[in-house]
Amino acid sequence: MMASRAVVRVGIALFLIVSAVVIAAGANPFSVAWNITRTPFESVSNFEQYLLALTPLLLVSCGLAIAFRGGLYNIGADGQMIAGAIVGGGVGIELSGAPRLVGVVAVLVLGAVGGAAWGALSGVLRGRYGVSEVLSSLLLIFVADFILRYLVRDPWRDGFLPQSARLPESTKLPELQVVDVHIGLLIALAVVPLLWLLVDHTPFGFRLQALGASEEVARASGIAIARTATVAMALSGACAGMAGVIQTVAIEGRIVQSLNSGLGFTAIVVVLVARMRALGVLLASAFVVMLTVGGETVQRSDGLSAFIVPMIQAVAILVVLVMDQQGRS
């Protein structure tokens, strides 16, 4: 009873704060809320934009879910995305003569490999030397980011801005027929059931969960901790790397400096809210992306500051968390 009353109070408090801010900024909080929920599904082009934004978050979240199930708190997905973009994109630039099928597959696979290598580095450090994967993956974000900045500033630079030349047509991801969205979406959607299969229906997934539930028991049961951790982190990084290269190829069309977007942190929230379950990851990603895409529209339609939108998102997710926590206890 006490707890639920506290929840109501906190919820109301958060809502009032946000409303106050929204009103102070000169808008109607109810219309803002409605617009955020509505816009992504309002028109075909909005919905396409929504799906485009969903793709990388879903991929990264699935990857994190693998690591998290193994108790490996990979918070460096941003670094793995960058690594994927560097490897996949870097090779992609050179593929102008290749047939499109080869180009696309090569770029996607190499992106995944780059991310996997970056993730596996943290996995090896953790499995073999006991270095906290939280720290190593975090620090490796900065390392990857500086490498990327160097590459696009100097060796790969094309033109005035710090970015590479346009990627050749052969690497352009095919569009889906129904909506104007690239096939990255299909890949992301396919990874969701794969995640479920891998974690819940393979011996590897079983060992991974054992590692996540109790490293001591896993070790005493003869499970190869270092290998399991490395593979899990590599898979996790592969998903992030693929997301990174998809963003590079499909959205930017070139390798840009600003890949370190904080998407990895958003994905952590998605995965934890989803309690690391595949279906939950899908739903939570959909919700979070709705807030982002809807929020961008609201900036224009309700004339809100660009800085207010992340605020609303944060509060919305916190409210969901609070409600979820109450549902559990």
Partner: peptide, 11 residues
């Protein structure tokens, strides 16, 4: 240590 290295309690 049964609960630390023998069984996974939540399983």
């Amino acid at each position: 240590d049964r609960y630390r290295s023998g069984v996974i309690g939540s399983w």
